[in-house]
Amino acid sequence: MSDKTMNLTLKIWRQKDAKSKGKMETYPVTGISEHMSFLEMLDVLNEQLVVEGKEPVEFDHDCREGICGMCSLHINGEAHGPDRRVTTCQLHMRMFKDGETIYIEPFRAKGFPVVKDLVVDRSAFDRIQHAGGFVSVNTSGNTIDANAIPVPKDDADEAFNAATCIGCGACVASCKNASAMLFVSAKVSQFSLLPQGKVEAKDRVMKMVKQMDLEGFGNCTNTGACEVECPKGISLDNIARMNREYLKASLK
């Protein structure tokens, strides 16, 4: 493996807390290996800031393998940066060039207020799930045998594909209307495709959509930006499916 290094200029959004006004600040970083992940590059910057006695840049992250959905960041105007089908923690510095200036901002949406620097509050997503993102079955273990209801493989696979959503919020951040339709429709789809979820399908879609609207997310105008930036490749078909489910539920 070759190891090219690069020097970069970072323009980063700094904001003390939810109430304060924020602004972009400039930080040079040097000797960045192309094999580093984007967050490891920010680790290098923060280590440097700590040693200089300055406050490090706050950003959300946890698993660093693209599955927990905690990392975010708008990098050069794109949610999770320039690569496709990756989260920011999986974005590698080989996607950037020596001498480049990189703009790093928090996800911007009314539904995602800034907590500090690059950290945003995505608890609206949790509240949408509280409204109906479940099958009403108790965890007693006394259900029917797992193989009692065969599920066509195609349906199971489609449900799985929808269920791989990591709840990062890139769809909202990428949408000019800050719509959460891709996120909500992924959950609605997962359950509506499976026999276990069909029983409550009508009730679920109505409640989840209602909560989504209450949280201040915008409408879907079919630009498809969400699908392009989604690190898990959640398909726009889910939105169509949710619209059908919603229509069916409204007409009952």
Partner: peptide, 19 residues
């Protein structure tokens, strides 16, 4: 496994529809 399937966990399935 019974519990998770009842909750809508989409486990991998074979073409016959079983797990």
């Amino acid at each position: 496994i019974d519990q998770c399937v009842a909750q809508g966990v989409p486990f991998a399935r074979e073409y016959g529809g079983l797990l």
